[in-house]
Design a protein around this nucleic acid. Structure first.
Length: 195
DNA sequence: TATACGATCACCT
DNA sequence: GGTGATCGTATAC
């Protein structure tokens, strides 16, 4: 199922889509054909060149090229030399906006996640953007790939989250973003409301 | 070529 | 609460 078609990313705002992504399921088809999956419980919206927290704020560079491409593609980048972050591009070509997926509730493939993360603690498997990429085995090879099953990493509907269960907060780790650091563009749902 | 720093995490006090 | 790991990227020289 192609979620980018289903939800018409290009006609909705990135902030709307960041909230809309909560409760959906991130799925990865592993090389042995089994599935790793989890429910999206935390997202952040990055809203183009004018948004001082967005990587595209400094214009188009080799790193941000994917964000300038069409919606429905993964933007994966390396952070702090050792972790990856997973984003979904949300707007039409030339309009660099994306959603950072910051947290999941693990569903399928939990034993493999434990091996990859080197921990037995389920609440520590996908509770952060770098952690969920490690748990899912997501690296830069997925950058610029389409979010469809053929690419092995995609999104499916799972649960509709009522607005009252969504909390908005400032985004994490962007103190440099001046007036944009206080924008309430981080969205979280209580994991207990997902199941 | 050199340097500073980051949409993080694990581990420490 | 604080700090080190570790390297791609942007920017300065």
């Amino acid at each position: 199922m192609n979620i980018s078609k289903q939800y018409q990313w290009s006609t909705d705002s990135t902030v709307f889509l960041a909230k809309n992504l909560l409760g959906k399921k991130l799925c990865k088809i592993e090389t042995d054909g089994t599935m790793t999956s989890g429910v999206i419980i935390e997202t952040e919206a990055y809203c183009g060149e004018y948004d001082k927290a967005c990587h595209a704020h400094k214009g188009k560079t080799p790193r941000t090229e994917t964000m300038y491409g069409p919606s429905g593609h993964w933007y994966v980048y390396m952070i702090y030399g050792m972790y990856f972050c997973l984003n979904l591009v949300t707007q039409k070509e030339g309009q660099p906006e994306a959603i950072l997926i910051r947290g999941l509730q693990p569903l399928e493939g939990i034993e493999r996640m434990k091996r990859r993360r080197k921990t037995q603690n389920i609440s520590n498997l996908c509770s952060g953007p770098g952690k969920l990429c490690q748990a899912f085995g997501i690296t830069k090879t997925l950058n610029a790939k389409k979010a469809i099953p053929k690419s092995k990493l995609f999104i499916t509907p799972y649960k509709t989250i009522p607005k009252r269960n969504i909390i908005s907060t400032p985004r994490i780790g962007i103190d440099y973003a001046e007036e944009y650091k206080n924008k309430l563009w981080r969205y979280v749902i209580d994991a207990s409301k997902v199941t």
